[in-house]
Design a protein around this nucleic acid. Structure first.
Lengths: 172, 172
DNA sequence: CGAGCATAGTTGCTTTTGAAACTATATGTC
DNA sequence: GACATATAGTTTCAAAAGCAACTATGCTCG
């Protein structure tokens, strides 16, 4: 943070002549949305993780499986992959860990033996009955300084970015 | 997505009597800001990464070091850690890789032999002269659907969240 | 000055992750 | 019905990441 004696910045307007005609490109990551968004999301994730990591020994993949299970009545590993954009190996390991701990059960689907239907066990339900309100309370505190309008606009803008991202990704 | 024959959902309003008085807590991750933000940031990062990974064989840590170097005249590994919230081992390895490729130089600071001042080599400058405009163009396309106001508001809200995050983190 | 503490950066080690190979089940075609 | 192909999920293996120990330098206070 000690910037008082950085003098090269005086050339920022490109008026220095001896370095060629094209102004040197600079990227201020603090003004660069992908970086800022990633940084913010990282910090939020890390802070929230304390809720489920320390208190319940869950990693983020396990937490996500449980959260999806809390409001999906039929869930498979495949669906978790699709919903969360996580690798199937990662999901597989998360599910296995949760099963080993007795938090979820895994039954082969009668319709298709390749699929395994996931369900919360009573123990899992108990855990979530504690964890979900805590997570919601934490989120409420996080957004406490936002007005209702700001919160709504934020979600709208995020939706816009998601759509635009798909559009960009499609055409390359 | 095939939900037409999931019948357990009929109990969603908590009117089922035999499962206790407290309504089952559900967490819809799609309405949960930490998840949504993380998901969006992940997708953006991943899409952007194609710019510097495929074309320039840079990973995200290396890209960040270069980007900071593009507008910091004095940079050390320590500062990169502070700015980017990355682990110092990760930063150290990124710096080493960049030096091995001749994109940056690393000179012990004359003031303090523990510090190493980082600088772009000409080769590094050439690379950035290509990469930075490409990254900025990509970002511009990403935010193309946002109005100026939406963009400004987004950054403002992100700043608010960052500040609130620190406040929450401080008190636990 | 010198002993003890702090700091910048590197290295070693363990865990986590992701890509790809693999298993087992299902489907489609002839 | 048999063969080719697709899909869900697991396992294996190599690369990446994080923690902690370590090195080297600098600082503080007696």
């Amino acid at each position: 943070m000690n910037m008082e004696d950085t003098q090269a910045d005086t050339a920022r307007d490109g008026t220095v002549g001896d370095d060629g005609p094209s102004t040197k490109p600079e990227l201020d990551l603090n003004q660069f949305l992908p970086y800022r968004l990633n940084s913010l999301a990282d910090r939020i994730s890390q802070a929230l993780a304390q809720l489920y990591e320390e208190r319940y020994q869950l990693n983020i993949a396990q937490w996500r499986v449980l959260a999806w299970l809390s409001h999906c009545d039929e869930l498979t590993a495949k669906k978790v992959c699709a919903y969360t954009n996580m690798d199937k190996a990662r999901v597989s390991r998360a599910i296995q860990a949760l099963e080993d701990r007795g938090l979820i059960s895994r039954t082969p689907s009668p319709r298709d033996q390749r699929l395994h239907d996931l369900h919360l066990t009573p123990a899992g339900q108990v855990l979530l009955a504690e964890l979900i309100p805590a997570a919601q309370a934490w989120e409420a505190e996080l957004v406490a300084t936002l007005t209702a309008g700001e919160y709504r606009d934020l979600l709208n803008v995020m939706r816009k970015l998601e759509r635009q991202l798909e559009r960009i990704g499609d055409k390359g």
